[in-house]
């Protein structure tokens, strides 16, 4: 549908759109080409979501997208992606160098934070980083002292945040954001689990169709069975049976409901 085209052009990009832009930039920087498949693999999302996103970004003149071509960034898109990536790097540096988070955790948090901060915050953060480095070279190692303080605290209460985050990273199928929030998609459940739909966006045609078929937010869905060849699978929703592919189910956030 033409909804997105009708929206004002200068509206802020959504976090996931920013992620897509950044992913293209990183792929290109690593000397690889950015095709839908590569982006999907990079972000751990389904190809249909990537296509939908590319269409949106291309409408905003941020990427050059043609269904069968390699995706490239436009000049505006490259600037935008660079800016997002810059935010990411500054935040990650702060998280690793100052707060001493481990790499994976810092990466995951930076991914989430980069979308939320504004220019002023970033500038201040950058200055703060410069400041701490200068102080460290001065010999006044208060950061080292903080890190020691942190390690002592951590041994006392054995609830290590970084472990949890690290463990979640191994999940597949969900977006970076969802993983760390512990959100699963409908594709992650097996028969005979019962789940509640937490979120379903109108980003893809499949999603819109599914909503019309009754998979609205809050609906309880039973996973009935998987087809003999492993895909698609069958669910019961609003008293009738519906089949859908796992790739489509990945676009639906869901939560298990105790039987």
């Amino acid at each position: 549908m033409n909804q997105v085209a009708g929206k004002p052009k200068r509206a802020k990009l959504s976090p996931s759109m920013e992620d897509y832009l950044e992913a293209i930039l990183l792929l290109v920087r690593r000397g690889r080409v950015a095709r839908v498949r590569d982006i999907a693999k990079h972000l751990g999302v389904g190809m249909p979501s990537v296509t939908a996103a590319m269409k949106t970004l291309s409408r905003r003149n941020l990427v050059n997208y043609d269904p069968y071509e390699v995706i490239t960034l436009t000049d505006v898109g490259r600037d935008k992606a660079g800016e997002i990536n810059h935010r990411h790097r500054v935040i990650r540096e702060f998280l690793t160098e100052v707060l001493a988070l481990d790499g994976a955790s810092a990466e995951a948090n930076a991914c989430r934070m980069e979308h939320a901060v504004d220019v002023d915050f970033l500038e201040r953060l950058q200055l703060f980083l410069d400041f701490t480095q200068r102080r460290t070279t001065d010999g006044n190692d208060w950061i080292g002292q903080f890190q020691e303080f942190y390690r002592n605290a951590a041994t006392l209460s054995k609830t290590s945040d970084s472990d949890e985050n690290g463990g979640d990273m191994s999940d597949t199928g969900t977006t970076e954001e969802d993983r760390s929030a512990g959100i699963k998609t409908l594709a992650d459940f097996k028969p005979p689990q019962k789940v509640r739909i937490v979120r379903i966006s109108g980003a893809t045609a499949a999603n819109r169709r599914l909503v019309e078929m009754g998979l609205t937010k809050g609906t309880i869905v039973s996973v009935l069975r998987v087809a003999p060849l492993g895909d698609p699978f069958e669910i019961k929703v609003r008293g009738y049976n519906l089949s859908l592919r796992k790739a489509e189910a990945r676009g639906i956030e869901a939560q298990e409901v105790p039987q």
Partner: peptide, 14 residues
């Protein structure tokens, strides 16, 4: 006919 396939959202009638 290159391109993405359409979603498989289909009712399984009783």
């Amino acid at each position: 006919f290159r391109g993405q396939t359409t979603p498989f959202v289909m009712e399984l009638p009783p």
